[in-house]
């Protein structure tokens, strides 16, 4: 965890608590549909594809590709230790896309961050109760 973390924190609700329990345990856990097989993000008590309520919390692989990103130059609280946030949309190999952050060493260079590059989940514990799912580029692919 990060001492005196100042960034915005999610407040889990009963319906999303298993997701945040998952990140705390180093796992990306999402609702998966028992009928159509689809995965849902952000977590809901039903399948976002077929509206079936037959969903089960299931561990995702944590692998995906970088779909798009932006580099925030505005001061963003909670990022003092890592520099400018690279706000990313990652497409999980299970299908859903999620807004996240890309972990980059040093000053982010947009020309060195290729779209569709393979990424993998990494976990950033920010407080005793909250661990945020971040992603990093997989060098040399998988």
């Amino acid at each position: 965890m990060i001492e005196g973390y100042t960034g915005k924190l999610p407040v889990p609700t009963p319906g999303t608590q298993p997701f945040w329990d998952g990140t705390q345990a180093g796992k990306l856990v999402l609702p998966r549909c028992g009928d159509c097989g689809g995965w849902t993000y952000y977590p809901r008590p039903f399948c976002m594809h077929c509206f079936s309520w037959n969903v089960t919390w299931t561990r995702a692989s944590g692998h995906g590709t970088l779909h798009t990103f932006a580099i925030n130059h505005l001061p963003a609280k909670g990022f003092e230790d890592v520099g400018k946030p690279v706000i990313a949309v990652v497409e999980l190999e299970e299908g859903p896309r999620m807004i996240t952050n890309l972990m980059i060493e040093g000053e982010p260079d947009p020309d060195a961050i290729p779209l569709d590059a393979p990424v993998e989940v990494t976990f950033r514990a920010v407080t005793p109760g909250i661990t945020l799912p971040w992603f990093r580029l997989v060098r040399g692919g998988r």
Binding site: G7, T68, P110, L115
Partner: peptide, 29 residues
């Protein structure tokens, strides 16, 4: 919005600051 809503849980913690930082996101695609 609130920190319990979908934006508060799954968007705001990732360094977005106002509309510029979210409108920037699709453009590179």
């Amino acid at each position: 919005g609130t920190p319990q809503g979908p934006g508060g849980q799954f968007e705001d913690p990732f360094g977005t600051v106002g509309a510029a930082s979210t409108y920037a996101l699709p453009v590179l695609r």
